[in-house]
Amino acid sequence: MLKYAKLIMTLALAIPLLFGCAANNYDNEARNNDNRVQNVRYNPPDRNRPTNQETRMEVAQTAADRVADLKEVSDANVIVANRTAYVAVILSNHLKGKMTKDVERKIANTVKQTDPKIDNVFVSTNPDFVERMADYSQKLQQGRPVSGLFEEFSEMVRRVFPTAR
């Protein structure tokens, strides 16, 4: 009987040890799998290609100054959002407020020469647009938060330039 008691005791101690090691191996393997998942390299999106979620806006003061230097233009504000420039201009008196395709093309070329990364240029002489662009330019130059401003700006752009993305 003592023999059986020793055998039962040995089995009682051996079985938890065997399963304990197996569980420990399972835990180690699970941890290794977790580490493999955590070490997967994340490739961020191409920063040269803007997405609809991006809210990068900046005043293109050099472009605005060069546009304002054109004889056809009295004053200009240029805001760049991603790779698109929005230009608000007040035309010189001799044009009597009438934008021609040639003047629009000249303004667009001037902006693109200032920043070759710009793909699209939208130009307007709409008085409301001119006034709001001056306000947005001032706010951006003062360092105001862009997030809420971007939504408001985007809505205005959709109204003034329905073909803009």
Rank of each mutant, 00 (worst) to 15 (best):
E54C: 04
D102I: 11
V123I: 12
F129G: 01
F153L: 00
Y26T: 11
E72G: 04
N126E: 11
L13Y: 04
A64K: 04
P16Y: 12
L95M: 10
K117G: 07
V78F: 05
T55K: 10
R47S: 15
A164T: 04
L18Q: 05
L2P: 08
M133L: 12
E131G: 08
N52L: 14
E58D: 08
K3Q: 12
A81F: 03
M99R: 04
Q113I: 07
S154V: 04
A85Q: 02
K117E: 11
Q113P: 01
P116H: 07
D119G: 05
V123L: 07
T125R: 05
K71P: 08
D69T: 10
Y86V: 01
V123E: 02
I15P: 00
A5E: 07
S92V: 04
N52V: 15
V37I: 13
G148I: 03
E152Y: 03
R56H: 15
T84K: 06
A81L: 02
R66V: 09
N126L: 00
Q138I: 03
R31W: 11
R36G: 02
R41E: 14
D69V: 06
N33H: 07
R159A: 09
P50V: 10
Y86Q: 01
V59L: 08
K71R: 10
D119E: 11
I8Q: 09
V80G: 00
Q38H: 08
D69C: 05
N28W: 12
L7H: 06
S137Q: 05
R56N: 14
K117P: 03
S137T: 07
I8E: 12
L17P: 01
R132Q: 10
V37S: 06
M156Y: 04
E151H: 07
M156H: 06
N109Y: 09
K71C: 03
N43K: 12
P116M: 02
Y42C: 06
R159P: 00
Y4W: 12
N32W: 11
Q53W: 13
I79W: 00
A60W: 01
D46A: 09
N28H: 13
V111R: 03
L2Q: 13
R159H: 09
Y4P: 00
K139C: 02
E151N: 08
M156P: 01
E104I: 03
R159S: 08
N43P: 04
R41K: 15
V59W: 05
V87E: 00
K101L: 13
A76F: 07
F122W: 09
A30Q: 15
L91W: 06
E29Y: 14
R165A: 13
A134H: 02
A22R: 12
T163F: 02
K3S: 11
N25K: 13
V157I: 15
E151R: 08
T55Q: 12
Y4C: 07
A81Q: 05
R165M: 08
T51P: 01
L95V: 07
I79S: 00
S124D: 06
V59K: 06
S92D: 12
K139Q: 15
A81Y: 04
R105K: 15
V89R: 00
R36W: 09
N43F: 15
M99E: 06
V87W: 00
P50M: 09
N82V: 09
G143D: 10
